[in-house]
Design a protein around this nucleic acid. Structure first.
Lengths: 335, 335
DNA sequence: CTGTTAGCGCGTTCAC
DNA sequence: GTGAACGCGCTAACAG
């Protein structure tokens, strides 16, 4: 379909050897400026661009990275991708996307398929369905890899995360200051450090303020919208909490639905506070208090780290970069 | 980093020729089952996977497609990507993502960089900043390409779109039936067929119902949130429309903000209706009437078409696939 | 059924 | 300054 314009073609048209063309294109000192100019102008004229497969094969570098995430259609991850892409462009890299849909087997299959030199490095936010550090302990030895947000700890790999514990603590405290005493917790990512840290922040805030934790007020996230909806409705009906703290954005919809189905007024009957990157949602519903992770920045930072590694540069300090989330308090804390 | 396990290594260990190994791996009929089995087991043992660069170079097939879109962090596009990815997985293809940020030069640069055999085909939703069909007329001759949603017409390329005219007509009619007579139009994608069709639907609905179109009620989208906000505020202040029809989801935020800033009650003072794929937003604000394009399906269909082309299969009928959008009418039409 | 040979397009080495 | 020759890992043509 595309007429082959390769180094050989350029060499023929200019009546010089292939090697000379190659060197000229790479601006080698061995080539005269005159020859270089002849090559460059013809290259431009014919729209020559080097064949990536050929140079990959030769150089073992692909100028490509992979992003392995649970799902693109999620505010947090799509913003992260934006950040990643921005940095990738600066470095002239291409970005492959793989969605695991929280399926650990798919996750392994994808990453394994990347080990044969398809990409120079991987950025990943792991599936929450399992915490299997064995696999990743092995993987990080084979390919440059940076974790972001959903990470594996205690591995020889950089991770970019946020202040999950602190922000969950502050958020819970905010609910308490608003007068809430029965704060239900919608628990997501329970297998992962991020999920555990958020929950710990919630627990410690209760403790600090002398509120006894009640296990009945916790609902754990499951796949399947209906199930979550039912669980929350049951929670609301049985235990009548005065607030819902949603630890992941996927819980917002069932939480709102449950309240509506039970004719509970938000925020009068129940206050709602959520981790969320839904800027639009916040605007449409200006009274929703939210925790926004700096998704875009996380993507940027993670990508920057990966490129530092790929360029064999020293990483500044730690292997663990922690960015700050933002707690946006709205009128009357709730939706 | 990864210890080289290639076809040569397998051949040596098994004391057979490289070609035999290659054929065995590709399950060629020329190779005995016994030999195949020996090769397969060793391959598995050593975790052999073919080097993609080498096979790309030889076969001129990359098993990779590119998706070129304005932005990932957008409900419509992120859902489209999900659909594309799903189909790509089925075909064992990899997916590269490029964001143009509505910059036509970036768009051209990206697509040009894909012409040297980096990908087998391209899926694109073009930038709205310009309608320059010359470039694409040329491009479609060079590489298999499918347009989705934001398309170029009259080119020899498949396009997957939605019923923009019809749904805009219906939506406008709905506002009229709700009693609105001064319906302002927030005009996006004005250079593209989709934007034109939506506007035409709006105009014709007005006409059908005997309402005179007023040019002052139109606000055109520009980059820069603040500018849009000001324009809408001016519109609301000067002309006091009883409804806002937003033709793109990017207009929702400034529209809501403008109403809030002017203390206009939605939907009592102004009804609001928008193109949108914000399922969350709809839920948080259950009274918002929306037009949802089937983003996921569009992605799937577009990808399917591309793979049919790549496999030299006949496309069923037309080069133009039109999917139906959904008008979700909510209580009292407005936000 | 198996092996030999010849590249795919590029970059590098070493002669000249 | 320039060119001939080789090889990255794999596949396809042809031979046997």
């Amino acid at each position: 379909m595309a007429e082959a314009v390769n180094i050989k073609r350029l060499a023929q048209e200019l009546n010089i050897s292939i090697a000379t063309v190659s060197k000229a294109l790479n601006d080698s000192y061995e080539i005269s400026l005159k020859t270089k100019n002849r090559v460059w102008t013809l290259a431009k004229e014919l729209n020559y661009t080097p064949n990536p497969a050929a140079s990959n094969l030769r150089s073992n570098k692909t100028k490509t990275i992979a992003v392995v995430i649970p799902c693109v259609a999620n505010n947090f991850f799509s913003l992260s991708i934006m950040g990643i892409e921005e940095i990738a462009r600066q470095y002239g890299y291409h970005v492959l996307i793989y969605q695991t849909h929280e399926n650990i087997e798919a996750e392994k299959a994808f990453t394994n398929s990347l080990l044969n030199g398809r990409v120079d490095g991987i950025l990943t936010s792991v599936s929450s369905s399992e915490y299997n550090s064995e696999y990743y302990a092995n993987l990080v030895k084979k390919i440059p890899l940076v974790f972001f947000d959903r990470v594996y700890e205690n591995l020889d790999a950089v991770r970019v995360t946020t202040d999950d514990y602190e922000i969950a603590f502050q958020a819970t405290e905010h609910l308490i200051e608003c007068g809430c005493t029965k704060i239900a917790y919608l628990f997501g990512l329970e297998n992962l450090p991020a999920g555990k840290a958020r929950f710990a922040g919630y627990l410690d805030a209760l403790k600090t303020h002398g509120i006894t934790f009640m296990e009945q007020l916790v609902v754990k996230y499951h796949d399947g919208e209906e199930f979550n909806l039912q669980q929350i409705k049951e929670l609301l009906g049985k235990h009548k909490p005065d607030a819902l703290f949603s630890s992941i954005e996927e819980f917002i919809i069932p939480a709102y639905r449950a309240c509506r189905d039970l004719s509970l007024q938000i925020p009068n009957d129940v206050k709602v506070l959520s981790f969320s990157n839904l800027s639009t949602a916040e605007l449409l519903n200006p009274s929703l208090t939210t925790i926004s992770q700096p998704a875009f920045e996380i993507g940027r930072e993670a990508a920057k780290c990966l490129f530092k590694i790929l360029n064999n540069k020293q990483l500044d300090d730690e292997q663990n970069i922690i960015l700050k989330s933002v707690l946006t308090k709205r009128e009357s804390t709730g939706g």
